[in-house]
Amino acid sequence: MLSAQSQNKMATAIMWLAGMLILLILVAFLGYMLIKGLPVLTWDFITGQSSDINAGGGVGAQLFNSFYILGLSMLFSLPAAVGAGIYLAEYAGNNRLTNMIRLSTESLATVPSIVLALFGMIIFVNMFGMGFSIIGGSLTLMLLNLPVLVRVTEESIRTVPAYYREASLALGATKWQTIWQVVLPNAMPGIITGITLTAGRALGETAILIFTAGTTVSRSMPDFNVMAGGETLAVHMWYVMAVGLVPDRVAIADGTGALLIITILIFNLMFTLPSKYIQRKMAGSGQ
Rank of each mutant, 00 (worst) to 15 (best):
V235F: 05
I210T: 03
A202R: 07
R201L: 02
V182F: 00
V148D: 08
E205W: 01
R151H: 11
A187L: 08
G230F: 09
A162C: 08
T232P: 09
V243W: 11
P189H: 02
G172V: 00
M241Y: 01
R158I: 10
L203E: 12
I192M: 09
E231L: 03
E205F: 00
L197F: 09
L209K: 06
E205C: 02
T159E: 15
Q177P: 11
L233D: 05
S218C: 07
E154R: 02
D223M: 03
G194E: 11
V152Q: 08
V217Y: 01
T198W: 05
E231Q: 14
L146Y: 04
V182G: 08
I179C: 04
L144Q: 09
Y163D: 15
G172S: 04
V246G: 10
S168E: 07
T159L: 15
D223F: 01
T198K: 02
T206D: 09
V226M: 11
L146G: 00
E231G: 00
T174Q: 06
L171Q: 08
A187C: 10
T159H: 14
N225D: 15
A207H: 04
H236W: 05
L203M: 14
I179M: 09
A170M: 14
R201N: 12
M241F: 00
E154K: 04
A213I: 13
A170Y: 13
S156E: 04
A213W: 11
L141N: 14
S218M: 07
F211S: 06
V160A: 06
L233K: 01
L169K: 13
E166W: 10
T196Q: 12
V243N: 14
T206E: 11
T216H: 08
V243Y: 13
R219I: 14
V246W: 09
I208D: 13
A213M: 07
L209W: 00
V148E: 13
A167L: 12
N145H: 07
L146S: 00
T198V: 04
L143T: 08
L184V: 07
P185G: 14
R219K: 11
N186T: 01
P161A: 09
T232C: 00
G200V: 03
S218I: 02
R158C: 11
T159Q: 15
G200R: 02
V160G: 01
I179E: 10
N145E: 14
R219A: 15
V160L: 12
G204M: 00
K175N: 12
A228M: 08
A207W: 12
L171G: 01
T216V: 08
A228G: 03
Y163F: 14
V246F: 12
V152A: 08
R201C: 05
S218G: 08
G230H: 06
A162Y: 14
R219V: 14
Y164R: 13
V183C: 08
F211M: 12
Q181F: 07
T232F: 04
S168K: 09
V160H: 05
F224M: 12
A234R: 01
I179A: 08
V235A: 09
M188P: 01
V152N: 04
R165I: 05
N186H: 04
I208W: 11
Y164P: 13
T193E: 12
M221I: 15
V240T: 15
T216A: 06
A187T: 04
V148Y: 15
T212F: 05
E154N: 02
